[in-house]
Amino acid sequence: MTNTEQKLKERVKELTCLYEVTSIIVNSNYDELETSLEAIAHCLKRGWQFAEAAAVQITIGDYQVQTKNYGNDMVSHSSDVKIFNKVEGRITVGYPSAEFSVTDFLDEERTLLKNVCLAIGNLMERKHIRDSEEETKRQMERADRFHIMGEITAGIAHELNTPLANILGFAELLVENTGDEATRRDLQKIIDNAIFSREIVKKLMFFTCEMPQEMEQIELNAVVENVLRLLAPSLKAKQLNIVKSFGREHIQMRANTVQLTQVLFNLIMNAAYYSPPKGAIHIELDKSNDRTIIRIADEGQGIETEHADKIFEPFYTSKPTGEGTGLGLSVVHGIVRSYKGTISHRPNTPKGTIFTLEFPKI
């Protein structure tokens, strides 16, 4: 750069670039960050001494944007983007190597690049904080919903138990005292439906952790094998392949056999229901010093994002009418919670869902 006028012109370009980048960041929509990063890349291009030849690439986490003339064979200068003092990305500005060299980068441009990286790092930190606050809020709202639902369902379960017991008892008494076959068939329908309703009440009580627990030391591997035997006809009908991965040959945990069977039965049954024919269901068991871990993965369509927070709610189901009560996963959640454990889900690769259960040492 040969004269003061040119130097001043470059300083104005750099300050304008920094002002534009700051304005973009201030007005950024956290849900459309890629658009903001693209705008910042074009601002940086205009801020360099040889703007027409300059090219920019911004890479941060899952985001990667670049101007159309960016190439890997360029002579370039880079600066790291730090988020909470950890390098999470990089911004690179380059020129075509056939026409330029590293000496064509100005010291002021290097300073500008560092300032832009700092500003973008601050933006990403604010996004992380916002996302964390929203996740915490969702978890609190979900916990409140479960608490309210628990109180409601516990009340419903207790209120329904007595009339259901009366219906079942009197219907069985009438069956014994009637000789008319048509009447006996009708009474049997009443009994069957009363038993079905009683099972729903039991599931509601499982959800609210109202069922008595008789805990004992059990072998988890054996419980899984027993559940697979129970589900063998359903698995065979869809020609599903069960892939077992047991971290140990014998994994012991303290639990109620009936409850743990119900948890595994529901999760594997759901995996089978949503799996495509000839698909695979992966069952993984492992144990560390203080935690027992169960993972069940399917290759179905997965859980849609808008439904992710609802699947453990009572009576919520994505199955067609008549194919599910919507209590299976809520029962699983209630039992796992009563063991002071956790249950979570995440997408499988390339498709499907992985449910993870973690039980602390009891």
Rank of each mutant, 00 (worst) to 15 (best):
A39M: 15
T16N: 12
L228A: 04
V102H: 05
D31V: 08
G279W: 01
N115C: 08
E181A: 06
F100R: 03
H128M: 15
R142M: 00
C17F: 06
L33C: 07
R126A: 08
D131W: 00
I251E: 10
T257V: 13
S344C: 13
E210L: 13
L174E: 15
T356F: 02
S101R: 07
S197K: 01
K203E: 11
T342Y: 05
L174W: 09
L33W: 05
V331D: 02
V258H: 09
L204K: 00
I268G: 02
L106A: 05
P276R: 02
V81P: 06
L267Y: 03
D31S: 13
E225L: 06
L160E: 07
V81I: 15
R185W: 03
V81A: 05
I40A: 04
S197M: 07
A182M: 09
M1E: 14
F359R: 09
P277Q: 04
E219I: 14
G326Q: 09
F196G: 00
E151R: 07
A154N: 13
K340M: 14
K287S: 14
I283S: 07
I195E: 12
G334W: 02
K68C: 12
E134K: 10
D290R: 08
S28H: 01
L106N: 03
I120S: 12
L228Q: 07
G61N: 12
T178G: 07
L357P: 06
I152W: 05
L8I: 09
T22I: 05
V263D: 12
L231P: 10
L285H: 08
T325Q: 15
D31F: 14
T136E: 14
L285F: 03
T305W: 03
V336D: 10
A255P: 05
G155R: 09
V224Q: 02
G169S: 15
K278R: 15
S132Q: 12
V65L: 12
F312L: 15
H77Q: 08
F196Y: 07
R126Q: 09
L220N: 00
D73S: 13
L267I: 15
E109A: 11
R185P: 01
L164N: 07
D144H: 03
A182Y: 05
A255D: 10
L112N: 02
L240C: 06
R198C: 00
S76Q: 10
H158T: 14
N85L: 11
D73V: 03
S97F: 08
P96Q: 03
L123A: 04
D192G: 04
T35F: 06
R346T: 12
Y19A: 12
L329N: 02
P350C: 12
V263R: 04
N289Q: 11
D144A: 09
V75H: 05
A41I: 03
K189L: 13
P314H: 04
I251N: 07
E176T: 08
L123V: 13
N256S: 01
L327M: 15
E125L: 08
L33Y: 02
A39F: 00
R346D: 06
K137M: 05
G352E: 04
T257P: 11
V93D: 11
K236C: 06
T353P: 09
